[in-house]
């Protein structure tokens, strides 16, 4: 378990990490998501004791990183952004060095062999790290983090610079490790976080702006819930019928598509209008040619966050507000459903 409380790191007047708090439970895979320079690596470096925080504290399995650094570090395996490899060593020498460095008590031979098998570096075991490809170096870096079988793994962009096949392999490996370890993984590849992590924390400009499951995030992070729909029917009739669908806030006409017409329908927050919409069009025998959510994908949101020209403070505020609203909306739906049942 990792607890981070009000962590702040200042470089001069620049706040790299600004009052971050979160908890990672045992056996959880947490994804750190954020643009470059958002403070992901800094947070990880503080967690692992490489940097010291300006204020706040980080506790790993009950050991404060600052007060009991050695015990805390024993709980940790860390793969920094750039794997800390000695290029003049062979993989064998390197892993043995890390083994000595971490004062591991497990039997040396079998332990290292098991790790090599796990990350698939057995065939380069006797080669100089200098001569290894990026993918192999990354794997040696992961192997290094696994030595001593630490309970917490902190992986800073573990798949960066790998080819697609290797990326999938590493993701599978992380998912597998997540069953027995607590993992924090940072990435700016959203699909990766979505594929691997149980929970995602989005960091921007040193602050946590979202903390949720990947699915909830893609739903809640979006500030546009409208749907674009193309219906084969007479414009006026369809438009007025759409306005009467339960949960619809507004309808606007976009343009004609041959005989059909495109509309943008915005639902009231928290309503799913797809079913009533379907009912409406079947009743009137208006074929739906297209129904598409205008919801932002994680990709879109991320791009907006990383875009320096857009002031993200509004988005951040709306994200927070939306989270609260969506919780309330769920209650409302639940209540209305109950009422309907009663009727």
């Amino acid at each position: 378990m990792i607890e981070v409380k009000n962590l702040t790191k200042k470089y001069g007047s620049h706040k790299a990490v600004d009052d971050i708090s979160f908890v990672v439970n045992d056996g959880e895979i947490l994804g750190f998501l954020g643009p470059n320079g958002a403070g992901k690596s800094t947070t990880m470096n503080i967690l692992t004791g490489y940097l010291s925080a300006t204020s706040g504290k980080a506790v790993v399995n009950g050991f404060d990183v600052l007060e009991h650094p050695n015990q805390a570090k024993k709980q940790l395996g860390y793969l920094p952004e750039l794997p800390p490899l000695y290029l003049d060593m062979t993989v064998k020498e390197y892993l043995n060095f890390v083994y000595d460095l971490k004062k591991v008590s497990m039997p040396r031979g079998p332990h290292i062999e098991e790790i090599c098998k796990l990350v698939k570096i057995k065939d380069v075991y006797h080669r100089l790290i200098k001569n290894l490809s990026k993918g192999y170096r990354q794997r040696v870096g992961i192997a290094q983090a696994l030595i001593g079988n630490p309970r917490v793994l902190i992986l800073d962009e573990p798949t960066v610079g790998l080819d697609p096949k290797q990326i999938i392999e590493i993701r599978n490996l992380v998912r597998m490790l997540g069953k027995t370890h607590t993992v924090i993984l940072s990435s700016h590849i959203l699909s990766e976080v979505q594929a691997v992590c149980d929970r995602v924390i989005v960091i921007n400009k040193g602050r946590v702006i979202a903390d949720d499951t990947p699915d909830n995030l893609s739903r809640n992070l979006s500030d546009d819930h409208s749907m674009s729909v193309i219906i084969d029917g007479e414009r006026k009739a369809v438009e007025s019928a759409l306005k009467n669908v339960k949960g619809v806030k507004s309808v606007s006409y976009v343009r004609p598509h041959d005989k059909a017409n495109e509309f943008v329908v915005e639902p009231i927050m928290g309503y799913d209008i797809r079913r009533p919409l379907f009912q409406l069009v079947t009743e009137n025998n208006w074929p739906i040619l297209q129904l598409k959510s205008n919801e932002l994908t994680l990709e879109d949101i991320f791009l907006r966050l990383t875009d320096e020209t857009i002031d993200t403070s509004n988005l951040e505020r709306s994200l927070k507000a939306r989270k609260e609203v969506s919780v309330k909306a769920e209650d409302i739906i639940f209540e209305t459903e109950e009422k309907e049942d009663a009727e």
Binding site: Y50, Y78, Y86, L87, V98, K102, K103
Partner: peptide, 14 residues
């Protein structure tokens, strides 16, 4: 330069 100090400083040695 090689960032290997990250390994040393995050290892349980003083």
């Amino acid at each position: 330069k090689q960032k290997t100090d990250q390994l040393l400083l995050t290892s349980p040695i003083s």
